[in-house]
Amino acid sequence: MTAIITPQLSHLKALEAEAIHIFREVASELERPVLLFSGGKDSIVLLRLAEKAFRPGPIPFPLMHVDTGHNFDEVIEYRDRRAAELGVELIVASVQESIDSGRVREETGPRASRNRLQTITLLDAIGKHSFDAAFGGARRDEERARAKERIFSFRDDFGQWDPRRQRPELWDVYNGRIHRGEHVRVFPLSNWTELDVWEYIRAEELELPSIYFAHEREVFPRDGMLYAVSPYTELLQDEKTFVTSVRYRTVGDMSCTGAVRSHATSLDDVVNEIAATRITERGETRADDRASEAAMEDRKREGYF
C-alpha cells in the first residue's frame, strides 16, 4: 500500500466536523429536538452547522427563541428573516406572556432584568412542545460553570442541572437516553472559543445583526459597562447619557447586555479586536454573571440556558 499524504484538518474544520457529528447524533437518537436561536453570533454559527449537517435535506427540527420582549430590534428582525430564508419553523416563547399569565413576576427598579425570568419561560415551552433535546450555543470558554458542563447535559423533569451527577462522557460516543419528561441540552460549540466563532463567521461569510459592528448609540455608564438608552432601562440619579461609537460583543437582553467602545466596522476589524482583547466577553458585557461568584452555576442548576 502506498503512503497516503493527507492534510490534517485545520483547527476550525476539526471543530466543524465535531459539531456536525453532534447534530447528527441528536437528530438520530432523540425524538423532538429544538435549536435555541436568539439571533446572537453563537446561535448563528449553530444554525449554519445544522444546515451543513443535514443538507441537501432540510434542518429536521424547529428553532425556538425565548424572547424577553427587551431585545434589540435589529436582532429580532434578523431572527425572523433568517428563519424565513431557511424555511424553518420559528417558535417564539414569550417572557411577557409568562408575566401576563402570572407564571413569573417582573422585577422592579432601575436594575430590573428579565434575565432570570427566561428560565421559567424556556422550561414551560420545552414542556409544552414535548422537546426532548435543546441545542444551545454555549461554549466552555465563556464562564467557569460552563467549563464544567458535558456536551450532552442532562436535565431532570424539573429542568434542573446537577453538576455533581453528570454522566460520564467517553470519546464521542454520546448517551442520549432519557426518561419521559427529562430532556438534554446539547452544546455543539462546547470546544469553540470566542475567537473561533468569529473566525468561522468570517470564513463562512455569515451575515450578522448590525449591532455587532461599530455604530453611534446613546448610552450611559453603569458598573463599568455602557448600556443602551432604551424604554426598558431606568436611569439612576446622576447617570448621564451620551452618544458614542460602540458595538456589542454579546447579544442578550437590553437590560443586562453592555456595549463596548469600538470603531470596528468590518469583520476583519472585529476579529483583530477580539484577538487582542484582555477582557472576557461575559466579563466585559454581561451584568447577569456578576450577581455572585457562582451566578451562572446557580442559574444553570435551575434550568437556565
Partner: peptide, 18 residues
C-alpha cells in the same frame, strides 16, 4: 468552577480550559 469545589478546595469534575 463549581461552588462545592471552591468551598472544599478540590476538583470534582472535569473543567475544560482553552
Amino acid at each position: 468552577g463549581l461552588r462545592a469545589e471552591r468551598e472544599q478546595g478540590i476538583t470534582i469534575d472535569v473543567a475544560y480550559r482553552y
